[in-house]
């Protein structure tokens, strides 16, 4: 059985797009992302809203093993029209869960210096947000923004520091928690706090 997508596609996807755009424009800020769609387990409805808003037939999706089941694959194919790929290096969007495994950011599509937009976006499902891991600064942040994500360890943040070093190429990250969204674009500088 196929779960229903957005009921009111035009309005709902526009609201979701607005929330995602604001999240990317204001790195580290946690925004609400509610919607009226049904999502197949274990995909969070906020992560599903990201997929249905940003993905289409030209954006291959990679799913982490924990998210990969027939229902989820069928759901993404049906509603987004997006192909699901086994090769992380060929995916434009990758969906993973915090605390589980995913390919190293350096192995994903980084874009090129001519076309930095031809890069991957990693969507990580998380339980919630709690400032304390890092302090963010850079474009879209007035001075600095304390930020933290439940279930992510030092090695993740270290990989993100490396990712920022590759700017303007590199990947962008979107965190999806129940009803919430936040983003960490490649342009953002990251300072790890001692306590992590």
């Amino acid at each position: 059985m196929t779960e229903r997508g957005f009921l009111d596609v035009a309005m709902q996807s526009a609201h979701a797009f607005r929330a995602i755009m604001q999240a990317v424009a204001r790195p580290g800020r946690v925004l609400e992302l509610g919607s009226d769609l049904e999502a197949p387990d274990p995909l969070l409805s906020s992560a599903a809203a990201v997929a249905l808003t940003l993905c289409d037939f030209q954006t291959p999706i990679w799913l982490a093993p924990e998210l990969r089941n027939e229902n989820v694959i069928h759901y993404l194919r049906f509603h987004a029209g997006a192909p699901v790929t086994d090769e992380p290096g060929k995916a434009q969007f990758l969906f993973a869960m915090a605390g589980e495994t995913w390919p190293a950011p350096a192995l994903l599509m980084q874009g090129t210096h001519e076309y930095p937009d031809r890069s991957a976006t990693l969507v990580i499902q998380v339980a919630g947000f709690a400032p304390g891991d890092v302090v963010l600064s850079g474009p879209g942040i007035l001075s600095s923004e304390p930020f933290g994500v439940a279930g992510l360890n030092t090695s993740f943040w270290a990989a993100m520091v490396e990712n920022h070093a590759r700017f303007p190429i590199g990947i962008d990250v979107i965190f999806a928690a129940p009803g919430l969204v936040a983003a960490l674009p490649r342009a953002t500088e990251i300072r790890l706090l001692e306590s992590v």
């Binding site: 196929t2 229903r4 997508g5 596609v9 049906f78 509603h79």
Partner: peptide, 8 residues
């Protein structure tokens, strides 16, 4: 019937 995907 339900609309799984409204006409688009």
């Amino acid at each position: 019937h339900d609309l799984l995907r409204a006409p688009e």
